[in-house]
Structure formats: structure tokens, C-alpha cells
Amino acid sequence: MQKVSLSEDLEFNDHKPAVKALLKTPYSSEVRILIKKDQLMKEHQAPFPIVIEVFDGAIEFGINGENQILNRGDIITLDASVPHDLKGITDSIIRLTIHKQDTIERINSIL
């Protein structure tokens, strides 16, 4: 058993989203993204399907050029290779579930 917290030890970065690997399972990795208001993660693609949960706050989530607002509690899934970007509407905590073969280094390379 592993236990972590999405809401403890929050360290927002003034210059770019803060990404932290929280835990790994045999199937996936759980990643926390802290994004401040108006910060942007430029368009990118994941090599495997992902799940995104807005744990707190609100973000603008762009998929193939169309933006939608995701608020606290919203969860979405994306298939592999779908171009997407995100922007903080407010300071936000995001939970990202990635495939076990994906890496946090890939996510950090987007920033």
C-alpha cells in the first residue's frame, strides 16, 4: 500500500507549472501538476492514454484548437497522441494519471 497527498507540501513555481511524481503502481504513475493563474503548458501529446483530474481550481484545456473549462472535480480522459494544452484560470492542483511506461521527464520537457 502507498499513501500520498495531492494537497500537502504545495510548492507553486512562479515561472512554470510545478510537476511532481507522487506514486507508481504496476499499471500507472500518478503525477501532481501545480499551475498558477495564467501559466501555460504548451501544446503536446502523450504517447499513451491519460486521465486528468482538476483536484482544485480551474483550467482552460485545449484539445485540437478547441478550449473548454475544467473546474474542481472535473475528470477527463485523452487517447494517446491527441494534441492538447492547458492554462491556469486560477491557481490549480491537477492530478495526472499516466501509463507506467510514460515518464515524468517527458512531462518536464514540455515546460
Rank of each mutant, 00 (worst) to 15 (best):
Q2C: 01
Q2H: 13
Q2T: 14
Q2F: 05
K3F: 09
V4L: 05
L6I: 06
S7D: 14
E8Y: 08
E8A: 12
E8G: 02
E8D: 14
D9E: 13
L10I: 14
L10N: 06
F12E: 04
F12H: 06
N13C: 12
D14W: 07
H15P: 00
K16P: 03
K16F: 13
A18K: 12
V19W: 04
K20N: 13
K20S: 14
A21L: 15
A21H: 11
L22A: 09
L22C: 09
L22M: 15
L22V: 07
L23P: 00
L23I: 12
L23M: 14
K24P: 01
K24C: 08
K24W: 08
T25K: 05
P26N: 06
P26S: 11
Y27M: 13
S29T: 15
E30D: 08
V31H: 05
V31A: 04
R32C: 03
L34E: 07
L34R: 04
I35G: 06
K36P: 05
D38T: 15
D38A: 12
Q39W: 11
Q39V: 11
L40F: 10
L40I: 15
M41W: 02
M41A: 12
K42Q: 13
H44G: 09
H44S: 09
Q45G: 00
Q45Y: 06
F48S: 14
P49A: 09
P49E: 09
I50N: 02
I50W: 02
V51H: 02
I52C: 04
I52F: 08
V54M: 06
V54N: 03
D56F: 01
G57T: 05
G57Y: 05
I59Q: 00
E60N: 11
E60T: 08
E60V: 04
F61C: 01
F61D: 00
G62V: 12
N64H: 11
G65L: 05
G65I: 09
G65K: 06
E66N: 14
N67S: 12
Q68A: 10
I69A: 07
I69Q: 12
G73S: 06
D74W: 03
I76C: 02
I76D: 04
I76P: 02
I76V: 12
T77R: 07
A80I: 04
S81L: 13
V82E: 08
V82Y: 03
D85W: 14
D85M: 05
D85K: 09
L86S: 04
G88F: 05
I89L: 15
S92H: 03
I94E: 00
I94C: 01
I94P: 02
R95I: 13
L96M: 10
L96Y: 02
L96A: 04
K100E: 11
D102M: 13
T103F: 08
E105L: 09
E105W: 00
E105K: 13
R106D: 11
N108V: 00
S109Q: 11
I110G: 01
I110N: 03
L111I: 14
